[in-house]
Amino acid sequence: MKLVYAFDAYCGWSYGFAPTLDEVVRRHPGLDVEVVSGGLFTGSRRVPVREFGYVQGANAEISQLTGVTFGTGYARLIADGSFVMDSEAAARGVAALRQVAPGRIVELAAALQHAFYVDGLSLSDPATYRAVAEAAGLDPDAVVGAFGAPGSAAAAKEDFARAAGLGVDSFPTLLAVQGERTTALAVGHATADHIDRRLGAFTAVF
């Protein structure tokens, strides 16, 4: 059995879920976790943030429910409403980090969201991945090189298809997968205890 975590690095609810996922991983250290990027802001949804009038209200709700904070760097980045969240670029970044340090992708996905939602760094900027890699003790040239390589674009598309194939249509979604059987452990928000109960019910049948 493994967990599949479908998220989007530009999704505020995914940012809010990161501490819960960290706790789940801590409780189940032997459980494999596959991290898959979703295409939340692609195509016609790749527009300036001013067109998403709900952002500030949603962020306040996320903070209240999950305890995460949104930093001053992030506030400055989106202040004039012109910033464009590009999920394809973010997914390429996740793929690059996953390629360089596959065993740390849960941690690195959270670090990437921290870079955006706290530090206000664009996930389309190679310098962001250099900063994340340096902070994590990874080879920054390897990460930046992977981000710009054609393989990362292909991996991003594969991630979007993987999420869609699993029936994921909102982020974050945490799934338990055993062979051909899949169940949702969390969609949007859940506590680690809630996930443990669902996981226990899922594994009880095997």
Rank of each mutant, 00 (worst) to 15 (best):
D196R: 15
V205P: 05
V35D: 07
T72P: 02
G71R: 05
E158Q: 14
A164G: 11
T72C: 02
V55F: 02
D193Q: 15
R27S: 07
A156G: 11
A131Q: 14
G53T: 01
N59G: 06
P126K: 15
D80T: 06
A127D: 15
P140Q: 01
D139P: 00
D22S: 15
A60R: 12
A142T: 13
V187K: 11
G200T: 10
P19D: 12
A201K: 01
V177R: 04
I62S: 05
T191Y: 07
V24A: 01
A133K: 09
Q56N: 01
G151A: 06
A95E: 06
G137C: 02
G67I: 06
G148M: 13
E51S: 09
L123P: 03
A161F: 00
E34S: 06
G73H: 04
E88C: 03
R92F: 13
F7S: 10
V4H: 01
Y74F: 13
A127C: 07
E51G: 06
A96R: 02
V118F: 00
G81K: 02
G38K: 05
F41H: 14
G200R: 12
V94A: 15
Q56T: 09
L77T: 10
A190F: 04
V118Y: 00
M1I: 12
A154W: 02
G148W: 12
L138I: 05
R181D: 09
V4C: 04
A90R: 02
M85Y: 08
R98Q: 13
P29G: 13
Y5W: 13
A135M: 03
L65D: 07
S44E: 14
Q178A: 14
L77H: 09
A149Q: 10
A115D: 05
A89R: 11
I62M: 05
V35P: 07
D139S: 09
G12E: 07
T173K: 14
L21Q: 11
Y10R: 05
Q64K: 14
V68P: 01
F160G: 11
Y15F: 12
W13I: 07
E23H: 06
L166V: 11
G73N: 08
G120A: 08
D139M: 10
L108E: 03
A101N: 12
A149M: 04
D8T: 09
R181S: 06
T66F: 09
G57C: 00
G188E: 12
S87G: 09
L31H: 01
G151V: 04
G151E: 02
R198P: 03
G103Q: 08
V168S: 14
P172S: 12
T20D: 04
T66C: 06
A154H: 07
A110V: 03
F70V: 05
C11H: 11
A176F: 09
T128D: 15
G71N: 00
L199Y: 10
A115F: 07
R130K: 11
A75P: 01
P102M: 09
G137N: 00
G53I: 01
H189P: 01
S44T: 08
F202G: 12
